[in-house]
Amino acid sequence: MLNIAVLIAFALVTAAIGLTFWRLLTGPDRPDRILALDTLYVNAIALLVLLGMHLDSALYFEAAILIAMMGFIGTVALCKYLLRGDIIE
């Protein structure tokens, strides 16, 4: 039963990643794309956690923690760029 649940969850999370990719490609504005990237990294964490449970390996957590930190820093850096982009004239 657990295996079936994990497989369904894989399908749902993969579909979620597909939806964020669609938003990333279609935009239309720059904040939309950054938001899509932000969601993409959270979905990637979900996928890694599922993979860790599926393969019974705790190693995937190191990757999940790294993605959580780097993703947040990336979002903040991109937002700061948007906020100061037209300050440097």
């Binding site: 969850a9 579909a15 669609w22 938001l35 899509a36």
Partner: peptide, 28 residues
């Protein structure tokens, strides 16, 4: 696991479906 996957999916669905940037912000 199912609750988690469903909410993750609905969050991204909101991102794809909502009409403008500020409403998209709420889903994810």
């Amino acid at each position: 696991i199912l609750i988690g996957a469903i909410f993750t999916f609905i969050g991204s669905l909101g991102l794809a479906r909502m009409p403008d940037f500020y409403t998209r912000l709420h889903g994810p």
